[in-house]
Nucleic acid binder design. Structure first.
Length: 572
RNA sequence: CGGGGUGUAGCGCAGUCUGGUAGCGCACAUGGUUUGGGACCAUGGUGUCGGAGGUUCAAAUCCUCUCACCCCGACCA
């Protein structure tokens, strides 16, 4: 490939639109261009990267027994209404209408369509297990697209769907996908951590996410993992054993209302009363499917709305606004408390049940209660874990290790769907006993575009991208430093032709540019190997092979360059 | 959706407060000199100042509305 004939619009300056390093680099190095918020063009080099990743995904999926198909992007709304997700997914579902004013969906995932596809056709347990997948553009009407390809409204995803006769068989199918995923990412040069995750609108029983751990701003998910066992989970799922100090004072003290003028926040109240935030209980009011709910949580904890949502089993959950809070508590925001709250369901974090003589708002401006006790003063409707785990807490699995946190980019996910879709859409088969049963399903996604960006976020330096060899758009870039020098041109093109004959993917920067421009562009674009063909080294009948990652320079005879590159590529 | 911000040449930006000839750097074109880490000289082209309406003798600049994009938050792969 000749640079002069390829569309690689590199930029000298960082694009104004980009915030994180991988996004900046992909734009600067001429891989992507934005069309609209969260919608991108993939330029020639990017297309090659995406093809590389897709092919690795294909090979591993096929090896795991899955079959590639291609389903429509455009779906009739009826299917989504049947599964219930027309309602539960809400605004994130990209919807449109046709000329007859019929509702349509631009697919963001294909559980409905694939279930509909096999419904009625797969009738016997003898046809199972079955796994169908596709690689396709997906749509999500993201509330806030950002970080380039990381959170787009249109993106490329591989999605697979498994159908099994029973739980036992499903477990095998699921594990096959987990193994295939680990292999896939590792072949892409990315080590991943598998974490437990919430199932969200996808539904089902359990789910896992594949995370690339990074220490840059691009890592948008916080994950928790145990330092002793293999427990790992994302923020919405991570559980922990609280190190609540056992209350020494067993005796319940009398409930007392105290003035706390102007003290609304946890900081202000604890400072005013001179108590630890661990002795305070925050009461947060929510609207859950229209019903008012009060959530109690220790003062130093963060509430996790996903956990709260799951516990309440509601679809819509939003924090009550100030007027609503004032109406319910008859006090300004900041003084809400569970004591005396009427007609409100009270849900408490499990830590609350171990607390005694704590502080809460008094539902009266400028007053708090001290020495509040569950049972005596407050009637709690339900108790469950609704707080975020925190670094340093004990592991819920081995109960010995300590939870640590890391930042990750989610590149893949797997869902144990159970019979949610097969039941709602009426897809069943006849088992060996002649009985009709719904399929046990799983769904498995890999973000192709996201994986590409995750690789950049993980592998780059101050000069540009450093692609893992397996997903680099090409393997080698040859730089004739001065194309007006016949000798340099001749030597460079000689190596170029030989590489093409050997099927080494090679780019030659044949532009009439200064050496500095070419060096900078080469570093930006980030191919694993570079060959400098310049006056200095040619004097000694040598060219230089530069390893992008290590910056190692190998001086070598032109005719030996090809073999050396092949050898080096094998080890990258 | 709430809060904050930005729209001026292909890209990055100044000019807006205080209305009066639309600018700078890079890129681009032509010629010349240069050629191992983003060259230099000369010449040249480049704009519905996001859009609509208004105020004014006069609007990039003031007012109203609107659209797009970015950042923080809620949502989520």
């Amino acid at each position: 490939m000749k640079w002069s004939e390829t569309y690689i619009p590199t930029l000298r300056e960082d694009p104004a639109e980009a915030e994180i390093v991988s996004h900046k680099l992909l734009v600067r190095a001429g891989y992507i261009r934005k069309l609209a918020a969260g919608v991108y063009n993939y330029l020639p080099l990017m297309q090659r990267v995406l093809t590389k990743i897709s092919n690795i995904v294909r090979e591993e999926m096929n090896a795991a027994g899955a079959q590639e198909i291609l389903m429509p992007v455009l779906h009739p709304a009826e299917l989504w209404q049947q599964s219930g997700r027309w309602q539960t997914i809400g605004k994130e579902l990209m919807r449109t209408k046709d000329r007859h004013d019929r509702d349509l969906v631009l697919g963001g995932t294909h559980e409905e369509v694939v279930t509909n596809l096999i419904k009625g056709e797969v009738r016997s347990y003898r046809q199972l297990p079955l796994n169908l997948y596709q690689i396709q553009n997906k749509f999500r009407d993201e509330i806030r697209p950002r970080f380039g390809l990381m959170r787009g409204r249109e993106f490329i995803m591989k999605d697979a769907y498994s159908f099994d006769r029973d739980e036992e068989s499903f477990k095998i199918s699921y594990q096959k996908m987990i193994d295939a995923y680990s292999k896939t990412f590792s072949r892409c040069g990315l080590e991943t951590k598998i974490v437990e995750s919430d199932t969200g609108a996808m539904g089902g029983k359990a789910a896992h996410e594949f995370m690339v751990i990074v220490d840059t701003e691009g890592g948008e998910n916080i994950i928790f993992y145990c330092d002793k066992c293999d427990y790992a989970a994302n923020m919405d799922k991570a559980s922990s054993i609280s190190e609540t100090e056992t209350e020494k004072e067993d005796a319940q003290k009398p409930l007392q209302k105290v003035a706390t003028p102007g003290a609304k926040t946890v900081e202000e109240v604890t400072a005013f009363l001179n108590v630890s935030a661990k002795k305070l209980v925050k009461t947060l009011l929510y609207k859950a499917d229209g019903e008012i709910v009060a959530a109690m949580i220790r003062g130093d904890r963060q509430i996790n709305e996903i956990k709260l949502k799951n516990s309440l089993k509601c679809i819509d959950l939003e924090m009550a606004d100030a007027p609503m809070v004032e109406k319910i508590t008859k006090a300004a925001v900041g003084f809400a408390g569970p004591v005396g709250l009427k007609n409100v369901k009270i849900i408490a974090d499990e830590e609350i049940s171990q607390m005694k003589n704590f502080v809460t708002g008094a539902n009266q401006d400028n007053y708090h209660f001290i020495n509040v006790n569950v049972g005596r003063d407050v009637k709690i409707d339900s108790v469950s874990e609704i707080r975020n785990a925190q670094t340093g807490e004990r592991c819920p699995r081995c109960k010995k290790g300590v939870l640590l946190t890391a930042k990750g980019i989610e590149v893949g996910n797997t869902f144990m769907l159970g019979t949610k879709y097969s039941e709602s859409l009426g897809a069943s088969f006849i088992d060996q006993n002649g009985k009709e049963k719904p399929f046990i399903m799983g769904s498995y996604g890999i973000g192709i575009t996201r994986t590409a960006q995750a690789a950049v976020e993980k592998f780059h330096d101050e000069r540009g991208i450093i692609w893992p060899a397996s997903i680099a758009p090409l393997s080698v870039e040859i730089l004739p430093l001065n194309v007006n020098d016949d000798k340099q041109r001749e030597v460079a093109f000689q190596i170029y032709r030989k590489m093409k004959e050997r099927d080494v993917e090679v780019l030659i920067d044949d532009r009439d540019e200064r050496a500095g421009v070419k060096f900078n562009d080469a570093d930006l674009v980030g191919l694993p190997l570079r060959i400098n063909v310049g006056e200095k080294s040619l004097k000694e009948d040598k060219v230089e092979i530069v390893v992008r990652r290590t910056k190692e320079v190998i001086s070598i005879k032109p005719e030996e360059a090809l073999e050396k590159c092949v050898e080096l590529l094998g080890s990258l």
